[in-house]
Structures are given as structure tokens and as C-alpha cells.
Design a protein around this nucleic acid. Sequence first.
RNA 1: GCAGGGGUAGCCAAGCCCGGUCAACGGCGCAAGGCUUAGGACCUUGUCCAGAAGUGGUUCCGCGGUUCGAAUCCGCGCCCCUGCACCA
Length: 960
Amino acid sequence: MALDFSAIEAKWRKAWYEAKVNESVPVPGKKKFFMIFAYPGVTGYLHVGHMRGYTFSDAVVRYKMMTGHQVLFPVGTHATGNGAITFARRVERGDPVAVDVLRANGVPEETIAKLKDPMEVVKFLNDVFINDYWKRFGFMSDWRRFTCTIYPDYSKFIEWQMRKLMSEGLLIQKPYFAPACLEHGPVAIDASETDISKGGNAEVLEYTVLKFDLEDGRKLVAATLRPETVFGLTNFWVNPEVEYVDAQVDGEIWVVSREAAEKLALQKDKVLVKGSADGASLMAKRCRAPYTGKMIPIFPSVLCDPNVGTGLVMSVPSDAPVDWIGLVELRKDTAQRERYGITDQMMDEAAPIPIIDTPGWGSLPAIEITERMGIDSLADPKLEEATKEIYKTGFHKGVMNEICGGFAGQPVERAKDAMRDEMLSSGQADLFYDLSEEVLCRCGGKVLVKKIPDQWFIDYASPTLTERAKEHALTMKILPREYYENMQAVLEWYRERACVRLGNWLGTRFPFDQKWIIEAIADSTLYPAYYIVSRYANEGLVRPDGMTEEFFDFVMLGKGNSEAVATSTGVPRETLDAIRSEFEYWHPLDINLGGKEHMTVHFPVFLMNHVAILRPEHWPRGIIVNWYITATGGKISKSKGGAQPIPDAAERFGVDAMRLFYAHIASLYVDVPWDDEKVEGYRDRLERLWSQVQELLEVRADEESGIDAWLAARMQTRLFTLHRYMDTYDLRSYVNDVYFEMPRDFKWYLRRYGKNKSVVSKALETWIALMAPVTPHIAEEMWQLSGREQFVSTYQIQPGSVDEHIIIEEAKERLIERLMADVAEIVKVTGLEPKRTVVMVAPKWKQEMLAMALSDPKGKPDVPALIKGAISTVESPAAKKEVPAYAKDVSTEVMKASAEDRQMLGALIDEMSVLSAAKGFLESELGCAVEIFAADDPGRADPKGKARLAKPGRPAIYLE
RNA sequence: GCAGGGGUAGCCAAGCCCGGUCAACGGCGCAAGGCUUAGGACCUUGUCCAGAAGUGGUUCCGCGGUUCGAAUCCGCGCCCCUGCACCA
């Protein structure tokens, strides 16, 4: 009987939302729990992987709700930036990929037509996220509080946030070099390629440009990442095939490639191209190197790429494999040399000069590595690897050698910056920024690095802010543990961050200068606080124009009084007071959950903005990071499943099966591939549990059974450990016990002839309730099936306690289980089919000795003392002989035991009566007669002398 | 480069912070038996090696160390992975 999961889900989500159990209401005096997950950006559809973190959050929130908390679990979306614009553009030009995806998701043509408008895209995707994802998954979210970063009221909040940062002195202005499209302004370079169409892996490199004087006063300008190597300069490379220009920069004439001049113009105040410069005419001339003043010859090289750096290269053959091979090739290329008049003597002058001592390398590593790797041509692709290798080891381990003047003996790592700074201040060098690979804007135009002279930053480098944030982070619950420790380093490492951008983006205008739009990360740091206000905005109780500085100062910081604020804003006083008291009730935020990509971006700024703006008692209490659901190759793909739209997956597998999959497949802190079959496996498990609940509801008897006390006890220990798991948000362990261990408890109960209706009913109530946080729909259905009213979702789960009585009940059953396992083991090894099983219970003196050993305060029982104690009480000579061996045995057993084991070992039970009571059960399970004796009963049957093996908790066994 | 993470039985994956409860949770796969043979089923048991007695042996990337005792702590080595700023 397959369950109709879809129907069950629809039924319960409707019921919950109609009954408004999802709406968050402060109840003064009652505990609260406030959790969010980092809201997603509305750049397109989400996939099944995204639901992992959201579902985890919902399960935690539901659990909190069922354990005595009022919960606040609001959701929103992030629309700042150009994601929605890009989306709309694609629809507008009929991009088949974009349009097909929409059609595949069942979007009608008239709706698609509307999506040419970015605002419509935001609206549309907001609806998709809320209805098709979050509501579909049954989230306990207060939908009245939904907000989006481009709502006018949200903007008011962001303006206020920026004003607070400004008054705290945390907004600063300085030049910035940002990747930008000439057409569209600054763009983000990242692998997901939100803003760009090519080059997502490029980075902005900071080159030192070194100026080499020509005789005529012009300067050849080379861009390098290794300014410290000027001591090893032997020659200069110019590409005779390339067109260079004379560019006037800061009153000097620089010779650079035409492309470089264009780039320079974006970064320097005044760059004037005066005319073209012929590369060939420079050949065999000399130029003066910066810093050392050495005159070096100019040689031809086809490797000077006009698009890279300045299009000119300085040559350091000692440490740059490319330069060395260039020289080798040039020496052989007599035709080229004759053409440009390069003599043998000039070649000899360009012999490599050792400048860096690197452990593991000789004095000329470039030569060494090219020989080792067998590189003898500039065409060899291995050159790049060789360069990287030398650069890496040289940079980290190298030391400048004795010819390096004032830098001799300095590690390269330090010398590099020191030399750059020295040459910069003497005017022999300059800085130049370039991208490591070609980047193209969405529009197809080139992305180049552009200087923005008046860029605004949030000063996350501020020492006081950093210190306060670090200190506070130490008091937070940050999971996983590794990230808790890492957070200190991340906060320390965080620098100023650009917080506004130019161009046509969605977002809030910068209140201090309207030409800027507040950037996407800056407007998403303090927003948990805004969910307190959003409800009032959504319901029209506060309008954006009432959201003044005084308004937010009052509701979030408690500044001023509601009467005055009501007068100045026009917002009714009672509304102001209500918001203010909600703010106080729900804050601080208990958990912010987000994907691992937030670890070095969002979480630190989230923290620092709270610290900078809100009062300390309102700073967030916890962060949980989740890893991803992936497919082989890293991204969700069609082949492994998972590419289907979320509603389709929900239809196919069932929401609860997906929720169970997310919660159990692995710890939150590892990546896991999506796998259709696994999800099906979880769905099957839910169906089995459903059948088991039905079966348990068949239990009807009124009379007690011997196993009743055990089931009740077991429920208590389960509750106890389950709550302990949830204290650390260890949902996986929780799920493992509830869905995989607890079913066995019930099975064992029935197997042991348990049949008491009220006992089962009580245990079942607990069990179904424990399922509700993770698989709420099926849990509600079970709840209803078992004749219960109300929602299981609002039921309060008991805390669970473990006392001595409970331990004894558990120990009794453990005796039976161990006995059966031992018999099974013996049967397996011997191949016997027992006709009779003789069970011999350990004598009293062994129990006493065990108790004595357990009572040892150091946990290291004293064997001689144990022997002495037993000898006096034991009477039979045969038993006396056993004493020393058993004493040793008991001692090691006690030493090895954990605290829980000791409790169990120490539980004093009357084994004889426990086994006698279970005799019928054992006979039926073992399929033979069972006889129970005391091991020291002379009347027992023990032809094989097994009786002496009897230990407390593990009786001796004889089979025949 | 900066800041971090990881290597566990056929596969996935717990455990590692707080050493003994660990031959090592759980799932998947596989095997045997049962139940049924409408069903991607379900139930029980087993699944490192050895064993006619409940046991012993060998394991948690490799090598060393600390300890009565190490998958867990320390050192070295090999291999793999993640995030990194106007992308949320």
C-alpha cells in the first residue's frame, strides 16, 4: 500500500498555514528561538541541493518549537546586483537556454513575456521560492515577514545601516582598482559568472612597473611580479613585431604597447599617446636598469604579448626559465641576431647572474629546472610549470644573496615588498593592475581594471571593530567546530571592503552620494533584524516614508521614546512600541545558517555589522555552516538526477523523503552527491515506518506484559540522548536514532510478547512526535491515524530522564539479548542444533566482587584486595580456585569500562528471576528447552564444565 | 598566494575536539533463511581472517613517537579537497 505522499503533504501544509501555527508571536516570559538561513539571490531557479540547508533549518526550528520555544524563522530573498537584470535580458533576447528552462518549469507564455522586466523577474522568482520551495517543504516560517532587498522599506533600513556605519567612522573613501566593463561599469569576477561571460577565474594582479631609461630620455616600462630580481637583470625584451607607443604619463614618456597604454589610461590620471614607437629600432640598443643603474642590452623576443602587462619584459635568466630559454634560442638564431646587430659579446654580457639562494636549488635555478624538465624551446608548454615552481620555492624559501646590496641576506618574501616600496618612492617604479586572463562582460565588451578614485569602503580592518567581533565570536556557537576556530583568523584577515558600486544595478542608493548603489554584500549583513519590522511594513502599518533615522534608532537601538518618534514619523505610537518590544523579545538571533561559500565573505561581515551597530545584548549567538549536495563533477547534473526542478523532485520522491535524505545521508559538514536511489531508499523507509505504526496500533490488550517497563524505560533513555544530540544541532545522530534505532525498540517489544495498549500508545506518541521535526507531514498523518487531535507539530516533547530504575530495566533486557547472541554465536561455530540449552547464572560472590571492583575510586581495582575479599566469603573449594582468575578478569573489565558501562555493570539485577520470567520467550526463540540454574547449584547439568565461565550479566551456557 | 579541511572496511559515511564503551553508528550493496510469490517489496541473520563453544588474530593513508592502552594525541611523509571580497 503505497502512500500518497503528495496528498498528505498538501493536506497538512494547508492545515498548518490555515491554523497559523507558523506565525511567530512573542509570548512574554516564554523562551524564544530565532533562526534564519542566508537568503538566496533571485538569479534563477534553485536546485535540490539548495534545499539541504533550508530543510536543516526548518527541522531545527520545528524541534525548538516542540521543546518549549516560541520560534521566529523568517525568510527573504536577495535581489541586489544585476542577476535579475541579466535574467530579464536573456528572456528579452529569447535566449533558448533561459526560455526553455522557464517552459520546462511550466511557466505560461504570457508570464514569460512579462519577464523582460527585471522587477517582474524578482516578483516571479520570489513567488517561486516561497510557494514552490519553502511552503512546498512545509516550512514553519512566518510568511507575513517575507522581505526582499529591493523593497522600498528594506532600502530605508539599508540607508539607516549606512548612516550608522558612517557615524561610527566605519565608512572610508580611497582609490580602488576594480574590474570594470567600459560600458557597464564595475563587474564581479567569479566562477559563477553572474556579471561576465568569460574569465570567471581571472584575478586582479598587482604588477610593479619598472622604468628603464633610454638614451633619448624615454622610458621602457616593464611590468613584473618580481621586483626583487632587478639585481639579476641581464637584458631587456622587446617584440619587434609589436606596435608600441610613446605615452605621456605623469610628465614622463613611457614606451608601452598600445593595449597597455589603453589600460594605463584607466588607471592613471592623464595618459596621452604621443605617437607610435618602433620596437625594431630599439634592438641592440641599451637601457639603464632601475635601482642598480646597470646598462643592459635590448633583445628581440616574440614572447612579449602586447596584452599582458606593458607588452615589454625585463629579463632575469637566473630565476626566470622563460628568459633563460629566450637567451638560449637567441644565441642559436644567427639570422635574427645579424638582422638586429646582436654580437656574441652582447650575448656573453647577458650571462645569468645568481641573486637568490634557495635551499634545494643551485644558484641558477632557472637553468637547473629547464635542464631537469628537458625544456629547450619557448614553445614548450612545460615552461609555465617550471616558472611557477621556481617562483613558489624562491618566494617562500629563498634568501637574497651577497650581491644584492642592502637586501643581502633578506628572505625574498620580505625583500620583494621592501624593494618595490623603495623604487616606488624614488620614482623608478609604479604600480599597474591587470587581470590574469581575458575577461569579457555580459555585453561582450572587454573587462579591464579601472581606477575608481573616490570609492567608499566599510572599514572592516578597524582594529577596535575586529577585536570586539573576535571576542564576541568566542562566545558564540559556531559550527562546525573547525570554523569556530577559523573565525578568529578570518576576522583578523578581513580588510576594508568596497560597499558601493557604480552602474545600473538593482539596490539601494547610497545616502551620502546618490551616484552609488549599495553593493550586494554590504546590504545583506544586518538584515535578520529587519524581519522584525518587515511584517509591519508588509501589513501597511508602517510606510517607507515613516522609516526615518529616528524610527530605526528607536526600534532597534532603543533611542528616544515612542511619543517623540511617533510625532516625527507619523507612525502610531502603539505600532512603534509593538515593534520595539518584538525586537527586544526575539533578539538576539540564535542561529544564522548558510553554505560554506559564506565562510570568508558573508559571515564575518554579518558579525561585524552587528557588532558595529547593534547593542551587545543583541549580537548574534550562533552560526552554522552547511556543505553542499553535489553530483559527480561538483555540480548538480542530469545524469545523476537532481537537475529536475524542486517541485518535480518533491512530486517524485515526496518532501519528507527528501527531508530525511538531507538530514541523514551525511553530516552537514561534508559534501554529498545527490542520488535518486538513495532518496527512494528513504521514501521506502518512511513507508515501512508507516506500516509499523499501523501494526503498533493493533496492540489492544489491557493487561500488563513483562516487557512494558522496559519499553517505557527505553523511551526515556532515547529522549535523553536525542535532546543531547540536538544541543549541538547534531541532526544526523538524532535522525539515526529516531528512524533507524527506535523502530527496533518497538520490534523488540512485540517480539518479547509486549501487548499493552496504553504502554504502546504512550511510547508511540513520543516516537511520532520525535519524527515531526524532520518528516512533519507523515508524522502528522501518523498522529491523526493514532487518533490524536491537534497537531503533532505543536506537541511538546518531554525532556527524558535516566535514573537507576531505568538503568535496571535496560540491564535486564541486555541480559536476555546477550544470552541470545552468545547462544547464536556458539551455534554458528559448532554447527549444533541444540535440543536443550542450560543457562547457569553467576554465583553471588562474583556479583559482589564486581561491585567491589566498581567501587574502586581510582577506577583501577586492586586485584589482591579483591581476592582477599572473596576468599573469605566463598565456601566451596572449587569456587575458591576460581577466585584469583576471576579477580584479574573483573579488574581489567572494570578498567576498560566507560562511565555508562559502569552504570550498566553496576545495575544489580536478580538474573535468576529475570531469566526465569523470560524462559518461555527463550525456548521459543531458541527452539529448544531452556533450563536455568545457578552456576553453583550442584544439581545443574554441566558435563563440559562451563559453569565456571558464568559472569554477572553473562551466564554460562551449555548446549546439547 | 591567504585562510582552512580531509584520507575509516565492497561503496557512501559516523566516530577523532573529551584515548579505553571500537571489528569500529547507520545506509547502500552482497549472502543465507523466512514470508510471500500483484508489486522499486518486507522480516530475521550474516557480511576482515580463523574457529565444533560464547573466542583469538589482524585492521581505521604510510612511517615514527607519547601511553598500561590510539582510528582518536604529537612529529614527519605521500595523496586529495574547500573558500577567498563589489558573487550571495
